[in-house]
Nucleic acid binder design. Structure first.
Lengths: 232, 232
DNA sequence: TGAATAGTGTCTGTGAGACAATATTAT
DNA sequence: ATAATATTGTCTCACAGACACTATTCA
């Protein structure tokens, strides 16, 4: 007679309804760039990197900010759950997103055992129609105490961005169709948290871009060309 | 009348058994290097990269190979489930492992909805005591049809290895304490699936290594020095 | 004109690819 | 000596950091 392993015996007799269930959620770190016009006459725009947060109106962590997210339905894929949440909060389909990491600490949700599959999403804010969510500047986000382990998830998402920015084209998903190299550089500097040399940056990035022939205007200094991403 | 806390109100109304449950498993791609002595007199060793597989003895996919894995208990973290499975199959604690990706296609397990959190592990085969598992050469693994979506998981794990090998020190976890640069290069070549130039390889890797002063013997050619990894 | 930013030119150091040259061992 | 692999030397090319220099606009 074949000897069965413990795992196989377990599987044979496994009936999920007899066990304390584990719920699966998705939580999404949505990044977007906002422009704040600081000088209307000279059209001086200041950019900042923002994360989409939701103010919780229910237990637990009522009144605190959390990442947009929700339970994964038993008949939908994880990716579909992410798309559903993104559509719901931004009105958009086809947002760039990728899986970040799955967080499974035992006490991370006080209600019950919840495992969260975290995603990163990058979106052009000019296309977004917000619903029950706010853009919060990344500097402020790092000051806030967020619900669940969401501060930790955001830390990890920033590490991922930092790690991928130099060998992928993900940043372009947070930019509008047309942008200047300075604007692009500013986002790199925010994500990498250090200053870059304009000359070197331009040279490394230029072959991913297409010239539009158009320029910024009324900037109070030499205008800069507007570019588009080749992969657009 | 006593005022109830938010938590009490929530728990009163929440009944997890009303929902169709989703089960969570871990599946682990364990990599190890085996040496096959092809010429006993001259001690000619041929290396190969292997993956640890389990032969399934029950429905579903009975008779096929699958990755070692198991259900995540409702009171254990995902990492702990991985450690438990690794201990069970290899007898070892402290195996290097990292989370790969979470796979959540709806039909991936014919029994019920199962979401699998996949991990990569790298282990020195000389320390392993196998239990209900076999080392299968990676070339053979890619020929086989595996249970569930495990072929896909292995493909992704190889991509991850390929991506990380050049900017991390993960490879060293599959090597024994002492090894030659040629052996190290052979593993790089297997993972990257291309030949490397010995001179260039040596120069890029040498500053991660410590000389032991000892040499291989009876190889039929100039002996090579045995090195250790600095991070050991 | 001067302030401010855009964009170019050029030098230098680093590091990988290519490959020639030398070293050491066993048969 | 010869075969086989280890190890070193050196040339070249690509590329990023540094920084000086030129260009263009608006106040």
């Amino acid at each position: 007679m074949l000897k069965r392993t413990e795992e196989e015996i377990f599987l044979e007799n496994y009936n999920p309804r007899e066990y304390e269930p584990i719920a699966i959620t998705v939580d999404i770190v949505v990044f977007g760039v906002l422009k704040i016009t600081t000088d209307n006459y000279r059209k001086l725009d200041k950019q900042s990197l923002n994360i989409l947060l939701v103010s919780r109106k229910e237990y637990p962590f009522k009144g605190m900010y959390s990442l947009p997210g929700g339970f994964v339905g038993s008949k939908e894929t994880i990716d579909d759950a992410v798309k559903r949440v993104l559509k719901n909060k931004t009105g958009l389909d086809n947002i760039y997103c990728e899986q970040l990491y799955t967080f499974g600490e035992v006490g991370r949700d006080p209600r019950m055992r919840v495992i969260s599959c975290a995603y990163i999403a990058l979106v052009d804010t000019t296309k977004v129609q917000l619903k029950d969510a706010e853009w919060i500047d990344i500097d402020r986000v790092t000051q806030l105490t967020l619900a669940f382990d969401h501060s930790h998830i955001i830390d990890e998402s920033l590490k991922r961005l930092r790690g991928k920015i130099n060998y992928t084209d993900i940043v372009f998903h947070v930019l509008p169709k047309r942008f200047t190299i300075s604007e692009l550089q500013e986002i790199y500097e925010t994500i990498l948290n250090k200053k870059l040399l304009a000359a070197a940056f331009r040279r490394t990035i230029i072959d991913k871009l297409v010239e539009t022939g158009e320029y910024t205007q009324n900037a109070g200094h030499r205008p800069s060309m507007l570019f588009e991403w080749k992969g657009f």
